[in-house]
Design a protein around this nucleic acid. Structure first.
Lengths: 254, 254
DNA sequence: AAGTGGTCTAGACCACTGG
DNA sequence: CAGTGGTCTAGACCACTTT
């Protein structure tokens, strides 16, 4: 005879909290505004700090919030549409072609991870590794390693003696890309999956280790072989990957 | 004088733990094998259960583990390559065309979320909403809602009286798709972003609310307008999205 | 009923940023 | 330096699955 408990499935506190906060963000906060600190928010909602943090983590995962240690929690701007096209069947282009959005940073020769090597068919052999990065509005959004087997770029000279150490890496990287462009690109295909950022990339992308990232693996095909393989790491909190076909600006890229 | 502390950045415990566990998974466990329970693992590594859970969460995010309440933690199989192609520029096809991987489930007429409505240009109006789902190896991997403005499918009859309630939804959904296929598809473009699963989709995909998902938004263009919009939700833990160009099976799809 | 993972607490200390 | 978010603890209870 008491209250009829229709809601037989008690919603977790952090889940309800997330909904409340989400609504508040829509109605009461502007982009860039800083929220009260976690201890105060927890007190205000009458929950432990850990519970509040669980809700904040969800909202950060969805790109609604941005948290920075020592600074505070701010309302994040809408996700940036990052064009990773042109997609398949469109005008395939090699990485580093004129007008692409990446900045070529460095080069070294290494033995790639086993999974990369097996796709390249270069078990155990060292390959060229070109490091590239990408920014939007001054913020780093992605980092990439492009693996190029030596067999793909036979025209490259032997490792040159460094005239000016520190600048040689980028120069060698560009040389690899130039050599790559001499070959005809037959096609490419991509996969996208969720990952967590490794320690070295964490610094490059200004995130803490373990932050969620979208990992894009691109296989470049020439002469029926895998001529190169790019592993690109995008910040999942700030990026929306856009696969456009190059015919006009896609609406979704917003 | 004492020990030289070269590693000036103390690694968080859960991060180190994750590495240890990851190596152990590679070398000592087979796919499907169940791990010791959380309380025992925590004791074995000398950490609090919450800390251990932080490491397990990371590994689950990366698709290495699968945890189920009441059951235990098991070693996950490698991620499934889910083909979401053919991509842009390739042979664009309407959803529901012969041979696509989706199962048509239901239909209703609703006013879509504001962001969908603005892309469709149907502010406030109800549109057709076709619910579809997708499985791989018997496991649900994705759920989708396809929004079709009434203007796109003018040939549809008015809402029919249900002869057999419960089967009518799927039948109406297929009718919408048939009507859609009569139009010529000019192109499509997609975005991929990280999200957290909503409560209703959580049941469909056999996950708890808040689990990470890859949200694919596809815009279908006909006659220069957005003729339909699909919002697809893929389990991020089990899926690797593959954008193939339809010319042979892509290596990355493995 | 027993055992699992999921939620929640109240507190402590650490790492980082900024004035 | 004060204030922020990040890590960690030791415990409790809950929801769920299996036996």
């Amino acid at each position: 005879m008491g209250t009829t408990q229709l809601e037989t499935v008690p919603e977790p506190k952090y889940w309800h909290l997330k909904t409340v906060l989400s609504d508040a963000l829509d109605s009461e906060f502007a982009v860039g505004e800083i929220l009260p600190n976690e201890r105060e928010l927890a007190a205000r909602f009458g929950v432990a700090r850990a519970t509040l943090r669980q809700a904040l983590e969800q909202l950060e995962l969805e790109g609604r919030l941005q948290r920075r240690r020592g600074v505070g929690t701010t309302v994040a701007p809408p996700r940036v549409g990052v064009d990773v096209g042109p997609g398949q069947g469109g005008p395939n282009v090699w990485p580093g072609a004129a007008g692409d959005a990446w900045y070529t940073e460095d080069h070294e020769e290494t033995v790639p991870p086993a999974m990369v090597a097996s796709l390249l068919g270069t078990e155990g052999e060292p390959v060229h590794a070109v490091r590239r990065s990408r920014t939007t509005n001054g913020q780093p959004v992605a980092t990439e390693i492009l693996y190029v087997p030596a067999a793909t770029v036979p025209g490259l000279p032997a490792e040159p003696v460094e005239a000016v150490p520190g600048t040689g890496g980028a120069a060698r990287a560009r040389a690899v890309l130039r050599e790559l462009h001499r070959r005809e690109l037959d096609g490419q295909d991509r996969t996208v999956e969720l990952g967590s950022i490794r320690a070295d990339d964490a610094r490059r992308l200004d995130r803490l280790p373990g932050a969620p990232v979208l990992v894009v693996t691109t296989r470049y095909v020439a002469d029926g072989h895998t001529a190169a393989l790019a592993v690109s790491t995008f910040r999942a909190d700030t990026c929306r990957l856009s696969f456009s076909d190059g015919e006009g600006v896609p609406l979704l890229a917003g």
